[in-house]
Computed example of a mutant assay.
Amino acid sequence: MAGSKQKTLILSLARRNSQPLYALNIARKLPEGSFDLMTSKQSTYDCNRFKNCFSIYTYTNTRTFFLSSIFLLPLQFIMLLPKLVRSYDRLYLPYGHFWDLPFILLFKILRKPIIYTVHDGILHQGEGHTAVQYLENFRIKRADHLIFLTHFVEQEIKNQFNRSVPSSVIPHGSLVAHFDFPPKLETDETRILFLGRISRYKGVELLLEAFEESQLPNTRLIIAGEPIYPFKAKELKAVDYHLEYLSEAKIAALLQNADILVLPYLEGTQSGVVSLGISAGLPMICTRVGGLPEQLEEEECIWIEPNKKDLKEALKTMVTDAELRAKLREKMSFKNQDLSKNQLAELKHLILGRTPSH
């Protein structure tokens, strides 16, 4: 039958940050030939490892976004239309993107299932505009099945939309397969790392205050990530800033050379940074907010409330207690954060719509 030859279309049009990485992590778990992966030609991640990956032109900045959305997207979509109708029996969105709207509408018209992984659902304070939240709501309302990374976000969305839609909770898998860690640079300093896009809710100012007041000897704090608001870098002798977009190689080097990873979030849903920390085997300090406690067990990191007093105590404990750091590193090395067999089977069934033969 022709229908049995149809595949799932995985749409991953983001150019950078962790979103394309998450999509690649999902794709590598699926049987080859059961899906096609559509990416952006402007993506910083290479998908050549997949024979069934093809790319379209998207955009490089805000100006080209508007021009490409008006002219390039419609043209490419029309050219792809016969293939979209003929070759695919479902659409999987591993995250939301501005350009997924026409694909969603087409698959709804064709009455073909749409599966969407919801990362945040309700945008964090200071992140995005009303239009971004509207598009997120649009995806959630039109998906036939929602995949959440934490129960926290699942409950938040169900409360917000007050509607019943089939859903599953499948956490972040390990990202270690995508990183080549360089040799570690030797130093006498203990290096504390904050990693990721700098948003107001992530508590970077709180971390800087706590670190400054702690006066920890022979210790260096690295703040690495691209600010999305007017972040003022506090000039401190023992603080290094990398306020820029971080390439895959740069992220790997930062993780490899860190001794401690800190997530001082004031609020949170889930975090891909936790998965990176596990992949790098780093001891972590995490605030007990949102869905973060679902990603690590109680004994797998130092849990704190999002306040300066707790953060100062945790920094001091982690820096001065080498034995504790070693124990946490060992826990990370044994932690199987990759999907369990049951979760992997469910993920394959949802995305592919059939039980894989291998």
Rank of each mutant, 00 (worst) to 15 (best):
N25S: 14
F71D: 05
L9H: 06
L246V: 02
E300F: 02
L296Y: 04
K309D: 02
S18V: 04
L84C: 03
Q270M: 07
G173T: 06
K348S: 10
K348Y: 02
L216Y: 07
P102N: 05
Q160A: 15
E189W: 07
E330P: 03
R200Q: 09
F103K: 00
L261F: 13
K335G: 04
F211A: 05
Q125T: 13
E298K: 01
D89Q: 08
T62N: 11
R142E: 03
F77H: 04
N162Y: 01
E323K: 08
E305M: 14
T8W: 06
T187E: 00
K41E: 14
R200W: 10
T130Y: 11
I10R: 08
L193V: 10
G277W: 03
S333I: 01
F98T: 12
E212P: 04
Y134P: 00
F107C: 07
G268H: 10
A2P: 12
L206Y: 01
A210C: 12
V132R: 13
I251R: 09
R197V: 11
H129K: 15
R288A: 01
R28Y: 01
Y265E: 09
H349G: 00
Q256K: 15
L254H: 13
G196S: 06
Q215L: 02
M284S: 07
A23M: 08
W303S: 05
K348V: 00
M332E: 04
E136C: 03
P264T: 06
L315E: 00
K7L: 06
R354M: 13
L347W: 01
I192Q: 01
F181V: 14
G196A: 13
L185Y: 07
D120C: 08
F77G: 02
L110T: 07
D144I: 07
P74C: 03
V169P: 04
L236N: 13
Y241H: 07
D120T: 08
T320D: 05
S4I: 12
I140E: 12
L106Y: 01
G353Q: 02
E305P: 00
P227Q: 10
T190N: 01
H119T: 00
L11F: 15
L261W: 08
H119C: 05
A249G: 02
P113F: 06
D188C: 10
D120H: 05
C301H: 00
R142N: 15
P183Q: 14
L311D: 12
I260K: 11
E323A: 11
N159V: 00
N25V: 02
V153M: 03
T62E: 10
M332F: 05
A249Y: 03
L93F: 11
P82L: 07
L324I: 11
E156L: 15
N342R: 06
K112C: 05
Q270N: 13
L328D: 11
I122H: 15
P74Q: 06
N162R: 14
N137F: 11
R142A: 01
L84I: 09
A23F: 03
L84G: 10
K83Q: 11
A233N: 02
E235D: 11
Y88M: 06
L311I: 08
L146R: 09
E300Q: 15
L216N: 04
T287A: 07
P94I: 09
I109N: 03
K308Q: 12
E297N: 07
T190L: 04
K232I: 07
I140R: 13
Y57C: 09
E213D: 15
S174N: 13
K341H: 14
D100H: 09
L243M: 00
E226D: 09
N342Y: 05
R90W: 12
